[in-house]
Nucleic acid binder design. Structure first.
Lengths: 168, 168
DNA sequence: CTTCGTGCAAAACCTTTGCATTAAA
DNA sequence: TTTAATGCAAAGGTTTTGCACGAAG
């Protein structure tokens, strides 16, 4: 049983880089320059991204030495294994990654008009999830919830358009 | 506003094939032999599948005339557009489809050990989803929730293995 | 030194598309 | 008879892999 909680009892005071180092050491993997660049870059700010966006953004930072595409993919996989990133959805065939470390658990509202992702957190949701799982004797590791729809801004824009049409 | 409810007020008494015919007619599309084979085959029983499994299963039914791979993909897209199928997850790069017609709304527990998908329904969940969306002025179209973890059977198997190890 | 990681190019893989042919309506 | 749909083959686009070289421990 104890190993099942180990993922959740990591020291949250560690920086992402330190956390990643810890993971790498535990697997006898090496902290290379490329992995260092990537973990620092990815956790510099909180946002959602896909592999291509990451590679472009990295290339834009001329100060950074470039990291090859295969290495980016390999490192993304390691960060997911380490529990530091998670894939929240597939957008047009590309996996969209989200921070899963140093940031509170959350889910997303996804606007189908503008593509925006709005984060929210609900304790109640976790409670229901656990209750349902318990009914089935299922042990929860995590969950992924995306609510599809239209955001406030796009709804307003639509209403404006409709009002205009009404007047014609 | 009225158009926003139209998707939910379709006549549920229609068979999947009839429902699909209705959709096709509304778009001036034709009810071809291939589309008939596919809609009948897919809705013959309720389960989750990916394009490849569907093609194999169809090929196994020697009685059925075969449908080409591109046509299968095209028809799956149409059934999704018609609101009769939905993609619940990506499994190893392949889109996993689930019935979204003639079957009550539901979400899934996904066992990471055996890959099983367990369905459940929760009114409370929909309530929370709507409350959160309302807080953000977001209009909900649908949602996708997957709870990852380990199912009862795989937990038992694991416990058996552990007990054995303990005795050594 | 030994082993692991990187970069390059090529491959793998699911899904989509162009086009000539076939079949709905 | 007109227009949409199919099947084939080939292309698309993301992600993965084989392998020789380079770097970490």
């Amino acid at each position: 049983m104890s190993e099942d909680f180990s993922l959740h009892t990591v020291d949250v005071a560690l920086t992402p880089r330190q956390r990643f180092e810890e993971y790498l050491q535990s697997r006898s993997k090496r902290l290379t320059e490329q992995r260092r660049i990537l973990v620092d870059f990815i956790f510099k700010r909180h946002d959602h991204f896909d592999a291509d966006e990451l590679i472009s953004a990295l290339a834009a930072e001329s100060s950074q030495r470039k990291v090859s595409r295969p290495t980016v993919y390999r490192t993304l996989g390691e960060l997911v294994e380490a529990g530091m990133l998670r894939i929240i959805m597939e957008n047009e065939g590309r996996a969209v990654y989200d921070h899963d470390y140093g940031y509170p658990a959350h889910d997303h509202l996804h606007c189908g008009e503008c593509g925006k992702l709005i984060e929210f957190h609900s304790e109640e949701l976790a409670r229901i999830r656990d209750a349902v799982a318990a009914e089935h004797g299922f042990r929860v590791a995590s969950h992924r919830l995306i609510v599809e729809g239209t955001c406030k801004e796009c709804l307003s824009a639509k209403r404006r358009r409709n009002r205009k049409l009404d007047r014609i």
